[in-house]
Design a protein around this nucleic acid. Sequence first.
DNA 1: CTGAAAGCGCTTACAG
DNA 2: CTGAAAGCGCTTACAG
Lengths: 339, 339
Amino acid sequence: MKRNITMRDIAEKLGVSNVTVSKALNDKEGVSEELKIKIKKLAEEMGYRYNTLAKAMKEGQAYNIGVIIAERFTGEHKSFYLQFYQHISKLLDEHQYSGILHILTSEDEKKLNLPRIYHDKKVDGFIILGQISKEYIGILQNIEIPIIFLDFYDDHVEIDSVITDNFYGAYEITNYLVKSGHEKIAFIGNIYATSSIQDRFLGYYKSLLEHRIKLKEDYIINDRDDNGKFIDLCIPDNLPTAFVCNCDRIAYNLINKLKSLGYNIPKDFSVVGFDNDIFASISDPKITTVEVNIEEMAKTAVKFIIEKIKDEDKKYGRVLVKGRIIYRDSVEKIEQGNN
Amino acid sequence: MKRNITMRDIAEKLGVSNVTVSKALNDKEGVSEELKIKIKKLAEEMGYRYNTLAKAMKEGQAYNIGVIIAERFTGEHKSFYLQFYQHISKLLDEHQYSGILHILTSEDEKKLNLPRIYHDKKVDGFIILGQISKEYIGILQNIEIPIIFLDFYDDHVEIDSVITDNFYGAYEITNYLVKSGHEKIAFIGNIYATSSIQDRFLGYYKSLLEHRIKLKEDYIINDRDDNGKFIDLCIPDNLPTAFVCNCDRIAYNLINKLKSLGYNIPKDFSVVGFDNDIFASISDPKITTVEVNIEEMAKTAVKFIIEKIKDEDKKYGRVLVKGRIIYRDSVEKIEQGNN
DNA sequence: CTGAAAGCGCTTACAG
DNA sequence: CTGAAAGCGCTTACAG
């Protein structure tokens, strides 16, 4: 194996010191412009590659950010967080950082095992992508490197988080349903499962409150068990005219179920979703939904984590990123009061 | 910022040298069992975290593998490679390595810009996930760290590659169609776009050859332009009875197109896909397809790249990983010769 | 079994 | 503007 080319090699060829080479290559003060150019040129010619590791060790920084996603969010057909990661990874790169994805297995989550990349000081901070257990949050808040929650939050803890404005998004899309004449509006989602679903539910509820529509218990329809596994939807006897689904996936399932029961969407029922993921576009009809601004959220999270590495006292709190309604074909305007 | 705990700190508390601590923590020879246990216990108590960076620099190894995916494969609804990456990342972790995802932008690909993580010596090797341009391959084969192609290959180059057995998979699934009575079988895919599609086409062709079915030019139906963008499918006037699609996505599109034209699938046309991705299961009817063994492929690629880092002379060549047919509802048995 | 010395490739202060 | 010295936290010979 051929030895690596180092700053010293460049320095020797030019009869200068490695310190000068270091300064030149890093565009620091203290080298004549002329020398600097000469050094850079020679470095290029010799195929010099900067050794980040050395710098990293010197500074005690790895220039890596760990991105933790719980295994249960990464199943076969759940690419949402992976897409998120893709953005994060790209943005990190622009800041001279690298992302290291860590899939947190259910076992490690239960046993509260921190990832190896933490123990090995391979990362300077963590972005936690998607809900994790309270207990795990508990140990995370005790580690000495900064962390950011992305797409969820936990109120018992003052960890900074970047979340989509679930509350407002659900509020707005429910308003839209009301404006379209609907009053009997059900919500679909396990309102105990995640803070996202909970907030979407509350946004829906706020819209009802504002419009003096009474919240009916049988209009809150559970869609998954406590492990996040989807369960069969239980449509109430007293049929609503519209459904606010906590995500497009479930809206898609609902539409198919209703269609198989002989109903027409949106003629018989209006359905709205959340996320604007693939299920919204492959559904027939295409689903009116709230688009989550993945890129903006990723950008914010990356900015925050890097700032926090530089200054550990930085605090951001809960930061909301607005989504927007994508109008499609799953909502029907109905006559007021015909229900 | 509190100083990090180092091996020296542990050593001092115990009145031994840092060398001894290093040996103990790494389970190396030359420390009494008793002392070793004492050291490990104290390290635990003091919350010592190993500094990989120092080791890495000493060894000139980063214990990171770069995974390069071309931007065009990571679009909104293309989670296939991201899923791949997820497996790779997890497997790498088991080998004490970390994966660093690099999305190669079209611009960098065109300008032949190597990723920063290469220039910064942040990775010890690369896994290239999915086809990249010949020119880019050209510069990649000149870098001094090992690389592996995953899910594609290029024959002008002796870079090791791990690919799914596209040829054999397409051959088998076409055989299945023939066995089901079909003779007028079309292939859908741009056979110049990627080596995967090309091999799938050739597998299809081999099946035809074996069954003495003539290959008809208008039965090779293009599905995308040279940039990989899907185009409208041009169904030949002389209608086939079955379609071999180069991927599930396009099989899904085809089925919808045929359905919108008033046809019934599989009554009027049989359709098979490839990949067993989400489009195969959300389609109605569900698509009979070839499942790619993502995990096995990822495992093989990870094993190979790590071996190649240890021993740069290691060669593997083109390694095929078998898939298997998933039988579903998109194929109809027809009477021989009724077409 | 234990440890002093040297070195991995940089950067940071400091001196000239 | 230029560079000698020290140090980041380990590991690898080598000596005792």
